[in-house]
Amino acid sequence: MSSAKFQLLLVDDEPLILQSLALLFEDYVVHAAESGIKGLEILKHHPIDVIISDQRMPQMSGVDFLRIAKDISPNSIRILLTGYADLQAVVDSVNVGEIFRYVHKPWNAEKLRETVRFACTVAEQRRAMSIAKAASGAIPALHQPKDDAPSEFELLFVDSNERHLEQFKAFFEPKYRTHVSTKASEAFRLIPNHNIAVVVADSHLNDVDGSDFLIAVRDKFPHVVTVLMTGSQDAKLAIKMINDGQVYRYLVKPFPRETLRLTIESAVIHHKILRENPAANSKTMENALFRNADSTARSIEEMLAALRATIASKPIY
């Protein structure tokens, strides 16, 4: 397919960045905006496939812009391209902006071109499946009244703190059947045998790193939605979770119960969309496109080893 039909929206307060990027993507239909407000205006009138936005901009920050952009055009793939974002901005870009990739300035031209090409494919698939309606359903879900009817979906919590696990179980049952485990390896074996929609893991686990575990989960079970819990905010970790793990949410402990409930509710809906429309899932797409044929690995250790090799050789970050 020719890229000419894809439409990009570039948002940066630095005109020279816009000039440079426009030429990098001269095969695309490029819209450029020097502010988030102008960007939103363009978004209302053009079917944008991929949005590339800076974070630090006057008046409206990149995350604020992407949050509104997500409501206006849920199918557009969102990429944050920034020279520096503070910790909060990175975390928000996951939780609020639901971004597809976090790219540092200065960037590598070829890698960025490839990322955008890939993002366009995902966007196109989404549109083709006309999932716009379903995807937008994920947003109102956050405002849905509490619904206690038992769900067919199951949850899995992985945390080295057993007391936390008990509390999670007590909080979500009986609505969701809730599995808990203190070990990533054990949790990993649990997933294929149950109808698990969401895996929530702490970054500190007894056996492997919680973030690695979640990346492996996404890789092996692309329809499972992942949520990372962590005791401390860490920009590097958050960026890794975005770019390698496509984590759905990044929660900083301690968080209010209500936050966790809303996160799980919307994650379950997200899972439903992924299951019904595999094309909505950038991870499935990515796997189909880039994954090396190592689907025989069964244990978490094998999985992680294979994954590290893939990430290292992957053309995209």
């Binding site: 630095e14 000039q19 990027l21 020279g83």
Partner: peptide
């Protein structure tokens, strides 16, 4: 951020 922005377009 102030430096990475020009670095971004210079490199590109």
């Amino acid at each position: 951020h102030e430096m990475n922005t020009p670095l971004g377009f210079v490199r590109n």
